[in-house]
């Protein structure tokens, strides 16, 4: 894992994978993609970064403990369901709204929030496991 080429190229690849994963997440409702596969790809990106730059660097890049992402993800998904309380509809009923952002109409919805929760959960869980394993593997 110490090839110069790999270490140099890894951040670029990782960045591309992360962008791709977000793209998959956002288009998931209409085209192939979604939170699960997006989260997995993002996790793979972080695993790659961990191999290339070391676990410590990756943890620093994450800013938070990876598992926190997963916890926030489950909370977000649950929150997406709880929101329906305010509209007097059953738990997890989809709610839709259109927001104007810089003049462009963007539709936001609770399923989107839910999918983001899925993304973060999958990402956080797997990254935390992979990083822990990679950390254990150093020098062994």
């Amino acid at each position: 894992m110490n090839s110069l080429l790999f270490r140099t190229m890894a951040p670029v690849i990782v960045a591309a994978m992360l962008v791709f994963s977000l793209y998959l997440l956002l288009r998931g409702h209409n085209e192939p993609g979604g939170g699960f596969v997006g989260g997995l790809i993002a996790a793979a990106a972080m695993a790659l970064l961990g191999m290339a730059n070391g676990v410590m660097a990756t943890r620093r890049a994450l800013h938070f403990d990876a598992l926190n992402y997963a916890g926030v993800g489950v909370l977000l998904a649950a929150l997406a369901g709880v929101l329906s309380v305010f509209y007097d509809v059953p738990f997890l009923t989809g709610l839709w709204a259109e927001v104007q952002l810089f003049g462009t109409p963007i539709s936001v919805s609770t399923p989107m929030l839910f999918d983001l929760g899925v993304y973060l959960t999958v990402f956080g869980s797997i990254v935390s496991v992979v990083l822990a394993l990679e950390a254990g593997g150093e020098g062994a």
Partner: peptide
Amino acid sequence: NIVNVIIVD
């Protein structure tokens, strides 16, 4: 994407 709709909705 019907599959995704089933999953998240």
